[in-house]
Nucleic acid binder design. Structure first.
Lengths: 418, 418
DNA sequence: CTGCTTGTTTCATGACCTGAACGGACGCCG
DNA sequence: CGGCGTCCGTTCAGGTCATGAAACAAGCAG
């Protein structure tokens, strides 16, 4: 139903994309298996794979014996074909990491930033410095860096300038994409941190093998990444998945967004600690920062703590049930630092609470799992952005100019002359 | 990212689909305009359109003068190329309607059914009788009927048997698709009524020209149809969009689904009337059935009625805001008989309540509109199912056997013999 | 070394889109 | 009323692509 034409070149790109994606995701594979699972003819597989090998994108990786006959050669994406850089713009620091195509980290850089109201220009400078630093540190050719993915905790418009709105950073309409592109020739990709972490969890973590999932992220705030049929759900302007500010207690607690009864006010770490303080006659949980205080609360044996945590599990279950009813996923992945901590201790109770609130059938069709990557995988998640592009395009697009322009000056005559 | 190969035939089908969809949706168009908007070359447009004209699927419809030169011929889908039958399985009646490809109704049939626990076999019989009846009534060749779309108010699995789970009908696991296919050779399509009504609203109603929308349906119960990038969002097992049973008041009123605090218990007509009865010292609104009672309540000037309706607007606003935060649509369409009645009187207040509960940015990017088709368009919505298939395939697939099999017996030798 | 099995590549074929040339229809103007 | 310019629509040669069948390659057993 898409209003886009299809040309014969799109076909080749689409098929290259299918093959490359499968080789990359499902490890070393033989040409035979590729033909089997993609329904492409062996001839085409050979043709396309041969092209990718010639480009250096794919390489042979040993062979495995086949009963009696010629052994099958395994194929993998060449790890050193190119490199990916991912960056995490957090509230307190900018972290930049370089990966090869096997997604092994090769270099890392980190820059502290002011906790509140960080100047976008400073952040952009840190990001560009970090980019140079990790390239230098890893000793790779800058031309081999396929892309620079940046994850920020806000919504990112899908325009050329990649305008960012990030409440926690105090940014409203920052054209971060344009700012970064002015400082580097490497392709820049910017997206919301929850969405990139969700993608990473889908490819390498608890979402493997699933096409419909919701990755729930509970930290100080609360967010979600919805994956529909293998691709992130964005909505009209890329701000879909704002689960934290859905109303779950009509007229309830005030949330930091200003509304009443948001889910975040009940199951976000800040909201939980605040509720504990109220239940504990104004005495907060011990701990310098939020994370240690939350850990303390989890370990606490007091009556107030137990009540607050029980309630939290209930609210979280209702919130997850809402997601299940609305999105009908195959899997729900519970992540974020607070979500992980809660889940490690209360997963069965969370499942039970969800079952109470969700419709029977969609609940039965889904499974609720803990995340596998942990909260520090944001930079890796950001690096999935250029990787996704590489896979979608079936490799780096061949320079299309070279094929057409030589014939341009006198197309007809030259063609005749042959 | 789809693990599906692309062949040279898919390309042609895809391009036919693009052209056909555009011709059908955007009325008579010239070849030039088609080339413009689809980015196909004029040569290909001519080629593909010529094929469709030869098949009788597309026809010329007058011409429009172009400044000075040869006038451009307009093209449209031939209304009499084929016919679509749509059926609505309601709680009290089965309604069957036949349309031509211009979506004008040509015949209608209706059968009352038992209000509760209707036997699936009876319903299937009514549906098949209705199918024959409207074909007979319209005087149409049965072979020209392209498909039979059936809308039911429950979830429909996307399997060959089209297994239906419909709480309101008392059905759990009814293979309605298999039952109907056993009684007719016409292709059968079954889907949830909210989804088909949503599709109709997208094509002919308040969703025209929009790619991301949520169609909200408030009747006795509450549902929603999410359209993402032009296609209905289904989730893993087609039960996505169960908005009515999301929790909006944690620990609140008991819903007929058994849970506490579901949205449906607050903004469904049944829930509203029940809340009014409680607020009105046990005296219900006057009226034999739900619909007249609800109309009475809307016209009522009493204090209890005003409070209940004000609260309803608030809950509805919060519920719509949740959809906006989660799905980030371009448009929200308010429909269903109760939703339409509420919206006609309270649309500004509903918008205001939604604005209070939604995040500022996604709210600013969306518009909330009333539906245009009314609640009786379910049969037409069902007829969109075979139409969607026709558009997706770019017409009726040509028999592929005829093209290949003659060469089969001795492909090599025969080829040489020429 | 030969036959056998299995994996991979080559080749002729048919299907497709495209740019450019060609043919057609209409209004305008001398 | 016939030539002319302006578009519209179609035809054709050229290039790209996937595919099935046949050919080639690489191991193993006898």
């Amino acid at each position: 139903m898409d209003a886009r034409r299809t040309t014969v070149r799109d076909m080749r790109r689409a098929n290259r994309s299918v093959l490359l994606t499968r080789i990359w995701l499902d490890g070393p594979l033989s040409r035979h298996e590729l033909g089997q699972t993609t329904a492409l003819s062996l001839a085409s597989v050979s043709n396309l794979v041969g092209e990718m090998i010639a480009e250096g994108l794919v390489e042979e990786a040993g062979s495995v014996e086949s009963d009696g006959g010629r052994p099958r050669v395994l194929l993998r994406v060449a790890p050193a074909y190119g490199y990916l850089v991912g960056a995490d713009v957090g509230e307190t620091r900018v972290q930049v990491e370089l990966f090869d195509l096997a997604m092994t980290a090769r270099a890392k850089a980190e820059y502290p930033i002011a906790a509140t109201g960080s100047d976008p220009r400073d952040v952009a400078t840190h990001l560009l410095h970090g980019l140079d630093a990790v390239i230098e540190q890893a000793g790779v050719d800058p031309a081999a860096v396929l892309g620079f993915g940046v994850a920020v905790s806000g919504t990112v418009e899908r325009t050329a300038d990649a305008v960012v709105h990030a409440q926690t950073l105090g940014w409203d309409g920052v054209p971060l994409g344009a700012m970064l592109r002015a400082g580097t020739g490497i392709p820049v990709h910017i997206d919301n941190g929850a969405k990139t972490l969700g993608q990473a969890e889908m490819w390498f973590g608890a979402g493997r093998g699933v096409r419909h999932a919701v990755i729930v992220l509970v930290g100080s705030g609360v967010g979600a990444c919805v994956v529909a049929d293998g691709v992130g759900y964005r909505g009209a302007h890329s701000s879909a998945g704002e689960w934290g500010h859905t109303t779950i207690v009509y007229g309830g607690r005030r949330c930091r967004c200003g509304n009443l009864g948001c889910l975040e006010a009940y199951v976000g770490a800040e909201g939980i600690l605040d509720r504990f303080r109220q239940a504990n006659r104004g005495r907060p949980a011990a701990g310098e920062d939020e994370e240690t205080a939350f850990g303390e609360l989890l370990r606490s044996t007091g009556r107030a703590a137990a009540t607050v945590l029980d309630d939290t599990v209930g609210y979280l279950g209702a919130g997850v049930a809402n997601l299940i009813n609305l999105f009908n996923p195959e899997r729900v992945v519970l992540g974020g630092w607070a979500g992980l901590a809660l889940g490690e201790r209360y997963l069965p109770q969370i499942r039970a609470a969800t079952a109470r609130h969700a419709l029977r059938q969609p609940y039965a069709q889904t499974s609720i799992e803990l995340c596998r990557l942990g909260p520090d995988a944001v930079a890796m998640g950001a690096a999935t952005l250029p990787m996704a592009r590489l896979l979608r395009d079936g490799g780096v697009p061949r320079d299309p100019v070279a094929r057409v322009s030589p014939a341009r000056p006198a197309p007809r005559t030259r063609a005749r002359a042959r």
